[in-house]
């Protein structure tokens, strides 16, 4: 078995352990490349059965339009149940990154929205596509990560996790977040997408797109809700990660295929989350968000 075979086998192992030992599992589907890989692995883990859990997308109404199209098409083609949750309070207040700032926007739509959805459906285990190479606090997290009934992560008091044996015991209300891609790197993900021919949102590939400069990032104007004082210009760009369009920076790139992306990555000198505004709100902000229940 080569490196990708082993990563695949480990992730499948994690999926099966999690499903076998939980009552109401769910897969947090955020539509990006990691979610695409996660879903592909879930299908492999349970074939010929379908993955025995629904997909949950915590929507913010500010995702790229192409993401939403891709999400709906994927769920329909695979015949999987898709739950879309939008925090009703955010809908009522019209929470958006322009008027309310990225921190409040992310907290209310994503963190609070996720907690609402998990509580409403009483999910006791949620799969996520986070990887340890993404960020310093994620590098510290267990594969099976315990959450209190208030969805809090306590990084100072994580459970031991030996070999491939996972502690799944929880009391009512408590839950586990499971990260089958913990030991994958960004490059592994792209190589696997290439090898397996996994569909990903076209925004990952370079194309001429309308962009403006905001806070040092290249922001794509995806719809007419974005306040503009200038006319967007067209540049050949792609995205390394996908989130809410007003908060996700594009990179100038000519990579139009997966092999070209892999080639570009090998020469990369910045990390993928460099383009994510929400990570830079303050130092240690990912850990703080995770402690509050963010994925």
């Amino acid at each position: 078995m080569d490196h990708l075979d082993r990563l695949e086998a480990d992730s499948i192992d994690i999926f099966r352990e999690a499903v076998a030992e939980s009552e109401r599992p769910v897969l947090l589907y955020s539509i990006g490349k990691d979610s695409s890989v996660l879903l592909h692995l879930a299908r492999k883990a349970f074939h010929p059965s379908k993955p025995p859990f629904p997909l949950l997308h915590v929507d913010t109404t500010w995702k790229f339009r192409e993401m939403i199209e891709f999400r709906d098409r994927t769920a329909a083609e695979l015949g999987l149940e898709l739950i879309v949750h939008r925090n009703p309070e955010c809908v009522a207040l019209g929470i958006n990154p322009f008027d309310h700032g990225s921190a409040r926007h992310t907290d209310m739509w994503k963190t609070q929205g996720l907690r609402q959805a998990l509580d409403e459906h009483r999910f006791d285990l949620a799969f996520g596509g986070a990887r340890r190479d993404e960020e310093a606090s994620r590098a510290k997290e267990r594969v099976f990560s315990f959450r209190t009934a208030q969805h809090r992560w306590d990084p100072k008091n994580q459970r031991p996790e030996l070999w491939r044996l996972y502690n799944t015991r929880v009391a009512p209300g408590e839950s586990i977040r499971v990260f089958p891609l913990s030991n994958w790197t960004e490059l592994d993900v792209w190589r696997y997408v290439e090898r397996e021919g996994i569909p990903v949102v076209p925004l990952y590939f370079a194309a001429w797109r309308p962009v403006v400069d905001r806070d040092g990032l290249l922001i794509m104007v995806d719809d007419d809700r974005m306040p503009l004082t200038e006319s967007p210009r067209h540049e050949l760009v792609r995205f390394r990660t996908l989130g809410c369009y007003p908060l996700t920076g594009a990179v100038r790139s000519e990579a139009r295929t997966v092999p070209e992306i892999v080639e570009e990555m090998r020469a990369a000198t910045t990390s993928e989350r460099q383009g994510r505004l929400i990570d830079h709100d303050q130092s240690g902000s990912m850990e703080r968000k995770k402690r509050e229940g963010y994925f």
Binding site: A136, S137, A139, K140, P155, Q158, N183
Partner: peptide
């Protein structure tokens, strides 16, 4: 670089295990 938790930076100690990924010409490492 590796002491990524707020409590670790505050106290200048390592509390939990951190995983880092790197590669040279010869091998990849976790």
């Amino acid at each position: 670089l590796v002491d990524g938790l707020a409590a670790e930076r505050e106290q200048g100690i390592t509390i939990d295990v951190a995983y880092r990924f790197f590669a040279t010409e010869a091998r990849r490492f976790i």
